[in-house]
Write a protein that binds this DNA or RNA. Structure first.
Length: 253
DNA sequence: CCAGACGTTGTT
DNA sequence: GTCTGG
DNA sequence: CCAGACGTTGTT
DNA sequence: GTCTGG
């Protein structure tokens, strides 16, 4: 699970800035950034925000992409893109909606942190999760280009790959309806580019699947924040990440 | 064979 | 309790 | 994923 | 486009 994120422009662009010249930097900042919905202090995937991703096609070039992968064969985005916000890592090479992307269209999404809901009695308490060192979180993703049959418009869309959750995530995300803790795939420093390597054979697939593991909780911090859903939702404002204390709920990890 | 789906989710 | 909308 | 609705009717 | 269910 990973349906709620905090993604700042600088965080999303950091990778591009490593090797961009001044002209490229200006192009990116002045043109591309305006096509996104950044900054996103809190957004849910169900709003299908436009963000920046880095694809295997050109790993250092930022691309505007919309959250909620629409497979190329889909006739209409509406029925599918609320169901493809996440892609179960164990099955990305099997599922119709993801298999071609898993082979040929993998991507990185850099975010500052993400949110999960904890259930305490009848109350729902959101947590904000980030790296302890506050560095950008590199998420493993899948992307695709989909042509809208109605407008002819080509849309770039993406999905966040998930894996089993670490013990901290299991404690936080304790929705009774769910069967097994999950968390987004966070690629450790130095391994991001492995996710963008070409797929040639079964061995490559094995190596890609090796990357889809839970990130160690020792590197993650979490604290309770204000409501993210419903009429009390804090909205897309910096206050979304500000700590909020709830009775009888662990405040920080 | 055709029709219809194609997806995700941890017990206060 | 269960479904839909965001 | 969670929050909120869950119903009917000819007019603000 | 491709798989599953009937």
């Amino acid at each position: 699970m990973c349906y709620d994120v905090n993604a700042q422009l600088e965080t999303q662009l950091k990778r591009a800035m490593r090797d961009a010249d001044e002209h490229a930097i200006r192009e990116i900042r002045e043109k591309m950034a305006r096509e996104t919905d950044l900054p996103l202090f809190h957004v849910t995937g169900f709003q299908h925000p436009k963000m920046i991703i880095y694809t295997n096609g050109n790993p250092n070039a930022p691309v505007v992409s919309q959250w909620g992968l629409v497979p190329f064969w889909a006739k209409d985005k509406k029925d599918i893109w609320n169901k493809t916000l996440n892609a179960r890592g164990e099955a990305i090479f099997e599922k119709n909606s993801f298999k071609t992307s898993a082979k040929n269209k993998r991507c990185l999404i850099y975010i500052d942190g993400f949110y999960e809901h904890h259930h305490h009695g009848k109350e729902t308490v959101p947590y904000y999760i980030s790296r302890k060192d506050l560095q950008p979180i590199a998420l493993a993703g899948l992307w695709n280009e989909w042509t809208d049959p109605e407008t002819g418009e080509i849309r770039n869309t993406f999905s966040i790959v998930t894996t089993e959750g670490n013990p901290m995530m299991a404690e936080i995300h304790n929705n009774p309806k769910m069967a097994g803790p999950r968390m987004p795939v966070i690629l450790p420093d130095g391994l991001e580019d492995e996710w963008l390597k070409p797929y040639r054979d079964e061995l490559d697939q094995k190596q890609l699947e090796e990357l889809l593991r839970p990130y160690p909780e020792s590197e993650l911090a979490a604290h309770t924040v204000g409501k993210l859903r419903g009429k009390d939702a804090v909205g897309n404002v910096p206050e979304a990440m500000v700590p909020v204390v709830y009775d009888d709920v662990k405040t920080t990890y």
